[in-house]
C-alpha cells in the first residue's frame, strides 16, 4: 500500500496594496465562513506593497467545489484564535472559488477589488 503525499501548491499571490501591515489567515473550512477552528496557516506581518504566495494542498485544490477563504487582519491584533469567530474584526474576508482566482489571474489584492468575469 502506498501513501500519497500532496505537496502544497501556490494557487495565487496575495498583494498588499494598502498602507497597513496585514496578517492573513488561510482557511479550508468552507462552507463554514467564520474564522477557522483550525487555520490552514497564517501569514504574519505582510508589509505595505509586499506580496506572498498562498499555498494549498493539491488534494484540496482538485476537490470538487473547492473554496479558498482568506481572512485579513490588522497586524496589531493581539492574538489570533477561535474567539475571533464571534468578534468579526477582520478587515476583509475573501471567499474565492477556483474560477474567481482564474478571473483575477491569480492575484488577490487588498483592498479588495471587484472580480471581472
Amino acid at each position: 500500500m502506498t501513501c500519497e503525499e500532496y505537496e502544497p501548491e501556490t494557487v495565487c499571490i496575495f498583494q498588499n496594496k494598502s498602507q497597513d501591515t496585514l496578517t492573513i489567515v488561510v482557511s479550508n473550512e468552507y462552507p463554514d465562513t467564520l474564522y477557522p477552528m483550525d487555520p490552514e496557516y497564517i501569514i504574519y506581518d505582510l508589509m505595505p506593497g509586499d506580496y506572498k504566495g498562498i499555498q494549498v494542498d493539491y488534494s484540496d485544490w482538485y476537490a470538487n467545489g473547492y473554496v479558498l477563504q482568506l481572512f485579513v487582519y490588522d497586524a496589531s491584533i493581539p492574538k489570533l484564535g477561535a474567539y475571533l469567530r464571534k468578534q468579526h474584526v477582520e478587515m476583509a474576508h475573501y471567499t474565492l472559488t477556483k474560477e474567481d482566482i482564474r478571473a483575477m489571474e491569480g492575484i488577490v489584492t487588498y483592498p479588495p477589488q471587484p472580480i471581472k468575469k
Binding site: I77, P78, K79, G81, Y83, V89
Partner: peptide, 15 residues
C-alpha cells in the same frame, strides 16, 4: 484556552 481582547475608545487592543 481562549484569550479575550477588546478595543478601547482609543482604538487600542486591551486584554
Amino acid at each position: 484556552e481562549r484569550y479575550d481582547f477588546y478595543k478601547n475608545s482609543d482604538n487600542v487592543w486591551k486584554f
